[in-house]
Design a protein around this nucleic acid. Structure first.
Lengths: 144, 144
DNA sequence: TTCTCATTTTAGAATTGTTCTAATCCATTG
DNA sequence: CAATGGATTAGAACAATTCTAAAATGAGAA
């Protein structure tokens, strides 16, 4: 009653995905990749993912969650978003897009790239090159 | 030899500024406001300011630094900028502007508002209103 | 001035999110 | 299947920030 559900995903793309990224497809990475990539795009904190894993009876240490999230981000499988001091979110959507940040709930929401447009980009300071542009539109509930 | 230097600033604008903001002009707040507002615009972390205060022989606890920085930000005297998980910067420049973030050094640099332009802002999600838009241009040193 | 009281400040403990460490585990290769 | 180097782990360590309860102080009243 615990092993039978495993058989469904014959060999989901995640293993291939991990291999392509140059990561050894370990039990933990496979499980996390499934949680992250076989559902809708979303924004998770390390704690969120840890909890999701527990809920799915996948035993993974928090250290591994952090390692994995960082590896996935460095390899371009996902993207780290910083909105609040003291908490990182990881976004499974790697398309070019920006975010709404709901100040009261702490939630992040994607802004599709065609709904926002940064014009007149300044040139990067001498000796540097732009690695990314983040736009965060902070919104507060009208009832605040 | 410790009290004589006090006499210089006859009654700098900071006291008025504090009163206008509805804050009692205490010794600590006056000292911090002077450090923050009587110099060029800049970006400080709580630790930075704590250190600056010590260097100026102003004794202020770290808790007060945090209280003050948050109060000043809430009252619009300065602005909190979050770029890295785990560290907050406070910007004494409250004009409408955005930032370069130097990934290698952790330094923030202002982008004057006329050098960048966010066009086609999306409308805020129902029931919310935009409280601020932050644009962070992350740059890395070319020698990385 | 002195008294009073709400506001501030404070030291240090506590919390939070994240990283480190050293031991153990396991995926891959031969 | 054994060897080996990368991966995972529990728990300690860490850094930034917040909390707590007590002591200090500013502002107004008397």
């Amino acid at each position: 009653m615990a092993e039978t559900t495993r058989r469904n995903h014959p060999y989901s793309g995640v293993i291939a995905k991990l291999k392509q990224a140059g990561l050894r497809p370990t039990r933990q990475r496979i499980a996390l990749a499934k949680l992250l990539f076989e559902n809708e795009d979303r924004h998770v904190s390390a704690e969120d993912l840890h909890e999701e894993a527990r809920a799915a009876s996948v035993s993974v240490s928090l250290a591994t969650i952090y390692n994995t999230l960082h590896q996935f981000s460095e390899l371009g499988l996902m993207r780290e978003v910083v909105v609040e001091a003291g908490r990182s979110y990881f976004d499974t959507n790697t398309d070019d897009h920006h975010h709404f940040f709901h100040e009261h709930s702490g939630q992040l929401e994607d802004i599709p790239s065609d709904q926002i447009n940064v014009a007149e980009m300044p040139s990067a300071p001498p000796g540097t090159s732009v690695s990314r542009v983040d736009v965060i539109v902070r919104v507060s509930g009208s009832a605040d």
